[in-house]
Amino acid sequence: MSNTAKRTNPTKVITGIVRLSYANVWEPKSINGGAEKYSVSLIIPKSDTKTLNAINAAVNAAIEEGKGKFGGKIPNKAALKLPLRDGDIDRPDDEAYANSYFINANSNTAPQIVDRNVNPILDHSEVYSGVYARVSINFYAFNSNGNKGIACGLGNIQKIRDGEPLGGRTNAAEDFATDVDDDFLS
């Protein structure tokens, strides 16, 4: 067996620490009447150049691998729908996306969701929109209904730490924490 037996997948990326948004990672959900999928928006700080460079390299590899879907030649990048988007441009009114890029990733199959020690997380309240995680993603070419581009597949999720929940959701402990419990009994 040679040293090159473990070939890495050029279209796969394990992100640095990103923030999950629109996290539909426990139950598949239909978006705009489409097939039910697991999905999440990954918010990537613009300062995480290592992850961003890895994503750009994987997108380029997916474009190269997808030549067949694009009629045998690589189209101009400007003609392709690309997955990496600028939060400051595409989500200017959402503070969570400020100074960040984002990618929407989805999958037909449930991601494995683990903690820092790679133990499965079973409590659905542990992973939500706002949590910080590392995520495995894979890029692939698509050409359907005149739309050509690169899509992002969702792999697995490793929760790194809690974050402020996104979407205005509060938790029960915060809602009902009060110093004035006496009033409840009167």
Score class of each variant (00 low, 15 high):
Asn3Val: 13
Asn3Ser: 08
Asn3Ala: 15
Thr4Met: 14
Ala5Lys: 15
Lys6Gln: 10
Lys6Glu: 11
Ile14Gly: 07
Gly16Trp: 01
Val18Lys: 00
Tyr22Val: 07
Ala23Pro: 01
Trp26Thr: 07
Glu27Trp: 05
Pro28Gly: 12
Ile31Ser: 12
Lys37Ser: 05
Ile43Gln: 03
Asp48Lys: 06
Lys50Gln: 15
Asn56Gln: 11
Asn60Phe: 01
Ile63Pro: 02
Ile63Glu: 03
Lys69Gln: 14
Pro75Glu: 11
Pro75Trp: 01
Asn76His: 06
Ala78Pro: 01
Leu80Met: 10
Leu84Gln: 13
Ile89Met: 08
Arg91Ile: 02
Arg91Lys: 14
Ala105Ser: 05
Asn108Leu: 13
Thr109Gly: 11
Ile113Val: 10
Ile113Trp: 03
Val114Phe: 02
Asp115Glu: 03
Arg116Thr: 13
Asn117Leu: 06
Val118Arg: 14
Leu122Gly: 13
Glu126Ile: 09
Glu126Pro: 03
Ser129Ile: 00
Asn138Ala: 13
Ala141Val: 08
Phe142Asp: 02
Phe142Ser: 06
Asn143Cys: 02
Ser144Gln: 13
Ile150Arg: 01
Ala151Tyr: 04
Cys152His: 10
Glu164Val: 11
Glu164Thr: 15
Thr170Asp: 02
Asn171Arg: 12
Asn171Ser: 06
Asp179Asn: 14
Asp181Cys: 04
Asp182His: 04
Asp183Lys: 04
Ser186Leu: 02
